[in-house]
Amino acid sequence: MREKTVANPDGKWDPANDFLLEVSDLKTWFETKKGLFSGKPQRIRAVDGVRFCLEQNQTLGLVGESGCGKTTLGRTLLGLETASAGDVRFRGRPLLYLSRKQMDQMRRHLQVVFQDPLSSLNPRMNVMDIITEGLERFGMLEGTKQEHASRLMAEVGLDKAMIYRFPHEFSGGQRQRINIARAVSLRPDLVICDEAVSALDVSIQAQVINLLLTLQEAHHLSYLFISHDLGVVSNIADQVAVMYLGRIVEAGTTAQIIGDPCHPYTQMLIAALPVAGQKRAESAQVKGETPSPADPPPGCHFHPRCPKAMEVCRHTSPDQTRLRDRTVCCHLYA
């Protein structure tokens, strides 16, 4: 990853020299009551000390299995969960602990596309109202609502004739196009895509991935692309970060991570992918299940499932090590 200057605190942000998004040591913990009568609360460390940077016009793919904290991380950045500790700078300014008003202003630059395209659209609003709501809110309408909405619909490949239709009248792929139109309508800097193509059929999924790539080229967007699907992520991300139980265990360029995974967990994830037309290596054995984030194993969280676990892994948590232009958290490389 290229070194950039840390954004200065006065809020002067220079896209050419500064990172768009800097996440340092972010923690999002949840407290839960264990049972009705046991008073001792349980702490779930959903996001536990995450650090990464994202440049403008770049895509970071965040991959991991269910429960690894990738969605909580995205929701924390959006202000939908409260961070417990850490610092996030977006466009050179702090993003955490903002007042509602401040966050409202920030949302112009920070948008989201969720997994379920239907439940994230208001069923009582037609397409035109849905995709121009933000534009009206920020006074960014150009021309009439109809004109602006038609332009956006053309941009995401929707038929303009459908401008007065309601979400339930569209197919899954078209609904996700509506969500994308709404997300890019304000010309944001960053769009967080949380499993945005996971619910779509393969042929439609490919269409939507291509649309995201085209929009990125046209508007210099950055994406934080959260997905469990390494195949999808590898076709859209410039950088990949692999998360396991709240921590990033390996991060680097997509080509490095896919072509030469270092962390045993990344290796396991890649080996587990069924690849059509290719016989799986017999050695690709996966063992165990992801432990509960409420009760992670001591030391390296991955050690009970790791084929290369050593004595040190059982009690000491590995630090981040730089290795051939990537970072990896594993005692093998310490």
Binding site: Q205, A206, L213, G231, N235, I258
Partner: peptide, 12 residues
């Protein structure tokens, strides 16, 4: 249309 493992941005 199946996304194969790639090394970065790639139109499908």
């Amino acid at each position: 249309a199946i996304p194969k493992l790639a090394g970065g941005r790639n139109h499908l």
